[in-house]
Design a protein around this nucleic acid. Structure first.
Lengths: 108, 108
DNA sequence: CTAAATCGTTAGCCTTGACTTACCGTAAGC
DNA sequence: GCTTACGGTAAGTCAAGGCTAACGATTTAG
């Protein structure tokens, strides 16, 4: 099971989001991902590890290269978290509105 | 305009997520939110400021109390970011698959 | 078999930011 | 007026983690 909270923690860093966005361009090596970014290759490597542990990235080893790509399970987990949060927010709003209405009736 | 990146930064902290979740219970004062959490009231106050700046919370002043609630605009921004990311990921996947297919045809 | 390329890992530095304590302003109640 | 409750802000501490530099393992090329 992939934790949405882990994914949120992972995406809470701006540089890591840049790395994550570059994963959309398909299977890329660490070097390719690091090029164009302002941080060193080891930094990118560490960010990729966090993304992988959070279920947001997958690796495929090809010779000495490691090709990273997006793991859609992390995105699905995030979407689920967001949907659930949205639902609970709406029901809470509805209940609050009903309480307000009841209070109105009592005071009238 | 509300930035989804700001929202992601804000939700990248576990304690802040706890504060955010408590906002679903309706209009709550800072003291009420802090009760049940393991951090002090000023800490909660700072978290609320970050959430507010990120478009995830709104305040309503009532006497000496400030009632915080969820700002749905932040959630909508997040959802938009996630949907856009999902779309671009899929199209990138599709393009990659087409490139793979073209390579297959060439090698045959 | 040697050399180069690729990437992970570790150590250490240093910045960021989460937290507490203390203080101050403000609004309501006596 | 005075007091009490509520909450934002400042100052300071401290741990988390992001970064670089150096090293090591593995694979491919020649």
């Amino acid at each position: 099971m992939i934790s949405a909270e882990r994914a949120l923690d992972a995406l809470g860093d701006p540089t890591r989001r840049l790395v994550f966005k570059r994963l959309r361009e398909g299977n890329r090596s660490v070097q390719e991902i690091a090029d164009g970014l302002k941080v060193s290759r080891p930094a990118v490597s560490q960010h990729l590890r966090v993304l992988k542990d959070a279920g947001l990235a997958v690796v495929r080893i090809e010779g000495t290269r490691r090709l990273y790509a997006i793991d859609t399970r992390g995105l699905e987990s995030l979407r689920g978290w967001l949907d659930g949060f949205w639902d609970k927010t709406l029901t809470a709003f509805k209940q609050a509105a009903e309480r307000e209405a009841a209070k109105e009736r009592r005071s009238r």
